[in-house]
Computed example of a mutant assay.
Amino acid sequence: MTTPSPTPAEVARAIDHTLLKPEATRADVEALVVEAAELGTYSVCVSPSMLPVAVPAGSDLLVAAVCGFPSGKHTSAVKAAEAAGAVREGADEIDMVIDVGAAREGRYDDVRADVAAVRAAVPAPTVLKVIIESAALDDEQIVGVCRAAAAAGADFVKTSTGFHPAGGASEHAVRLMAETVGPAVQVKASGGVRTLEQARAMMAAGASRLGVSGSRQLLAGDGAAPSGY
């Protein structure tokens, strides 16, 4: 039996409605929150300097913040401090970037230690998502870093920052990531998810969360979501 495609409302509940542009203002973030509540997204995802974020009274909208973004070339101590600070300012979830160069060199123990440092700084119930920049890695490297992230206590592995020139999410990467981590760790697809068709394809491949900046256009199904994250 064919599984029905998720409805726009079901897709919305998988979306982290995202604004990470360096020129973003507080007014932009306030508008993001209003739009997220209207669309019924799972959360908003913002830069840590934009915290705290006020969500509408009675809303179940969550707040995520990035850490070590977008290069991942920060020290583990800096990432841990940034993540802990974001949680103190009200973040429910942290999306951290690994050292992609370490992954490309096969230094998976270093990746594991990096993730573990952030996990220790923001223990459960804070949700930790680990951005692996999958488009910059080959399949062996994707498997290696996903295993490292899972071993370090990640709740999610996430495809992309949306800022890397190699590109964003792909169905192949999402499927490989999901197969690698199994049911204990979830997968977030982000970077270049701009249409309802793409969102559904990523979910069919194994993503349970989506990073989207143009959520209104995506959910409307008009294919006009803006480029970028």
Rank of each mutant, 00 (worst) to 15 (best):
M1R: 09
A84G: 08
D222N: 15
E89V: 00
S43M: 13
A178L: 05
A205L: 10
G214D: 04
A80R: 10
K188E: 10
A150M: 03
Q217A: 15
V29G: 06
P183A: 14
G85F: 08
A178E: 12
E93R: 01
G101V: 11
M177H: 07
D95T: 02
L196M: 10
E23V: 07
A201M: 00
S59Q: 07
R104L: 15
M202D: 13
L219H: 00
A149H: 03
L128T: 11
A225Y: 03
A149G: 05
R209E: 06
Y229W: 10
F163H: 06
G228L: 08
V212T: 11
I98F: 05
C146T: 04
C45R: 01
T18S: 15
V122Q: 09
D114P: 06
L19K: 02
V78Q: 14
G153A: 04
P123H: 11
G191L: 02
A12F: 03
S5I: 02
M50R: 12
Q186I: 00
R209C: 02
H164R: 13
P123C: 11
C146P: 02
A84V: 08
D28W: 06
A81V: 06
A135K: 06
Q141L: 07
V63Y: 11
D155I: 00
M50G: 02
V78Y: 15
E133H: 03
V66I: 14
R112H: 09
Q198A: 15
A80C: 09
C67K: 08
S71E: 10
A84D: 13
L218T: 02
E93C: 04
T25V: 13
L20M: 13
S190W: 10
V29D: 08
L210C: 03
V143H: 04
A201K: 06
S47W: 03
R88C: 09
R119C: 01
T41G: 01
G153F: 01
A113Y: 09
I94N: 11
A86K: 12
T195K: 00
M1D: 13
T18N: 06
A91Y: 14
H172P: 02
P6Y: 06
A81C: 07
A113H: 14
A117I: 05
L61N: 13
S170M: 06
V212C: 09
L62K: 15
V157M: 05
